[in-house]
Simulated assay, not measured.
Amino acid sequence: MSYPQYQQQHLPPSNLPQQHGGYAPQQEATDGLGSWVLTTFLMFIPLVNIIYLLVLAFGGSNSLAKRNFARATLIWMLVSFVLAIIVAIVLATAGVSIFNELSNSYSTNYAY
């Protein structure tokens, strides 16, 4: 039984960047499960989480995934902090106005 001979087809050049220099691109090591467990554990500790996120976000020796995770988490923390301040101001002004209305509605004239 004879098998047909296949010839290699020459594909047109793609738009992808070509490798130059004869070396393979450096592949980034993926983070293991233990590294992510430690990261999520440290996120539960107040103040330590902010320091750890700053180190991950702006330190140079971490993986790209953790760097992006830290930057996104810091952005969400900042947004939630600003929203909490706005809500606190609105509730404080509403509380002051309610207190003023209640104090003005009762008469201080106790003449019998």
Rank of each mutant, 00 (worst) to 15 (best):
I50D: 09
N62R: 05
A29H: 10
G32L: 05
V55T: 12
T30K: 10
L33S: 12
A29C: 05
T30I: 05
I45G: 02
W36S: 03
D31A: 15
S61V: 05
G59D: 04
V55G: 08
F44R: 10
N62M: 06
F44M: 12
D31M: 14
M43H: 05
L33V: 14
F44W: 07
L47S: 14
T30H: 03
S63H: 00
D31P: 02
G60L: 06
L56S: 03
L54Y: 12
P46A: 01
F41V: 10
G34K: 02
I51H: 13
L56G: 04
S61D: 08
L53H: 06
T40S: 08
T30R: 09
T40K: 08
T40V: 13
G32S: 15
L42T: 00
L38V: 12
I51L: 15
G60V: 02
L42Q: 02
I45A: 05
L56A: 07
F41T: 12
E28R: 09
P46C: 02
L53T: 02
I51T: 15
I45H: 03
L56I: 05
F58E: 03
L38Q: 12
V48M: 11
T30Q: 11
A29E: 13
L56E: 03
T40D: 07
N62K: 03
A29L: 13
N49E: 08
T40P: 00
W36Y: 13
L38R: 12
L42A: 00
A29Q: 14
L38F: 11
I50L: 12
L38I: 11
L54H: 13
L47D: 15
F44A: 09
G32W: 00
T30C: 00
I50P: 00
L42M: 08
G60N: 10
A57M: 04
W36E: 05
N62H: 14
A57P: 00
N49S: 14
F58P: 02
L33R: 11
I50R: 09
I45P: 01
F41C: 10
N49Q: 12
V48H: 02
A57C: 07
N62S: 07
I50A: 05
N62A: 04
